Computed example of a mutant assay.
Amino acid sequence: MISSLRHTGPVQIINAAIQALRQIVSPPFRRMLLRSIGLTVLILGLVWFGLTRLLNYYLASHTLSASWPVLDTLAFFVAGAGLMVGLAFLIPPVSALVSGYYLDDAAELVEKTDYPEDPPGKPLSVGLSLLYGLRFAGLSLVINLFALLLFFIPGVNMAAFFIANGYLLGREYFEMAAARFRPMAEAEAMRLRNRATVFGAGLVAALVVAVPVLNLLTPLFGIALMVHVHKSVQRAELAAPQGTATL
Results as ranks from 00 to 15, higher is better:
residue 67 S to E: 07
residue 68 W to Q: 01
residue 79 A to G: 01
residue 73 T to V: 10
residue 62 H to Y: 08
residue 38 G to T: 03
residue 99 S to D: 01
residue 34 L to E: 01
residue 49 F to D: 14
residue 88 A to D: 13
residue 32 M to Q: 14
residue 59 L to Q: 04
residue 88 A to W: 11
residue 76 F to V: 11
residue 35 R to A: 08
residue 41 V to Y: 02
residue 51 L to H: 12
residue 35 R to W: 15
residue 97 L to A: 10
residue 54 L to K: 02
residue 40 T to W: 05
residue 85 V to N: 09
residue 33 L to Q: 01
residue 79 A to K: 02
residue 72 D to R: 06
residue 80 G to Q: 10
residue 79 A to H: 11
residue 93 P to L: 06
residue 71 L to E: 06
residue 36 S to H: 07
residue 96 A to M: 04
residue 53 R to H: 06
residue 57 Y to M: 12
residue 54 L to D: 00
residue 46 L to N: 03
residue 95 S to A: 11
residue 36 S to M: 03
residue 35 R to K: 14
residue 67 S to M: 01
residue 33 L to K: 00
residue 88 A to N: 07
residue 53 R to E: 07
residue 96 A to Q: 02
residue 96 A to H: 07
residue 63 T to W: 00
residue 40 T to R: 04
residue 92 P to L: 13
residue 56 N to F: 13
residue 35 R to V: 02
residue 32 M to R: 06
residue 73 T to R: 13
residue 79 A to F: 13
residue 75 A to L: 08
residue 54 L to G: 06
residue 63 T to Y: 03
residue 93 P to Q: 02
residue 84 M to C: 03
residue 32 M to G: 07
residue 44 L to R: 09
residue 94 V to A: 04
residue 46 L to T: 04
residue 45 G to P: 10
residue 61 S to H: 13
residue 53 R to A: 09
residue 78 V to P: 03
residue 96 A to I: 09
residue 60 A to N: 10
residue 90 L to K: 08
residue 42 L to A: 05
residue 55 L to E: 10
residue 49 F to Y: 10
residue 48 W to A: 14
residue 74 L to N: 04
residue 94 V to I: 11
residue 97 L to C: 03
residue 41 V to K: 05
residue 94 V to Q: 11
residue 89 F to L: 04
residue 80 G to K: 06
residue 43 I to K: 07
residue 67 S to H: 02
residue 35 R to M: 13
residue 31 R to T: 02
residue 92 P to K: 07
residue 50 G to P: 13
residue 94 V to M: 14
residue 61 S to D: 13
residue 34 L to C: 08
residue 88 A to E: 09
residue 34 L to G: 04
residue 47 V to S: 13
residue 50 G to V: 04
residue 74 L to D: 11
residue 66 A to E: 10
residue 62 H to S: 14
residue 33 L to C: 02
residue 89 F to C: 08
residue 48 W to I: 14
residue 84 M to P: 05
residue 91 I to N: 01
residue 82 G to H: 06
residue 76 F to H: 11
residue 61 S to F: 08
residue 63 T to E: 05
residue 45 G to W: 06
residue 93 P to I: 12
residue 78 V to G: 02
residue 41 V to Q: 07
residue 51 L to G: 12
residue 75 A to T: 13
residue 60 A to C: 11
residue 72 D to Q: 05
residue 73 T to P: 08
residue 68 W to T: 03
residue 70 V to L: 15
residue 44 L to H: 13
residue 30 R to Y: 15
residue 72 D to F: 14
residue 96 A to W: 05
residue 57 Y to I: 04
residue 31 R to G: 00
residue 66 A to P: 08
residue 69 P to C: 08
residue 86 G to F: 13
residue 58 Y to C: 05
residue 66 A to H: 06
residue 50 G to C: 04
residue 60 A to Q: 09
residue 48 W to Q: 12
residue 59 L to V: 15
residue 45 G to C: 05
residue 44 L to I: 10
residue 71 L to A: 05
residue 89 F to H: 09
residue 69 P to K: 08
residue 67 S to Q: 08
residue 82 G to T: 04
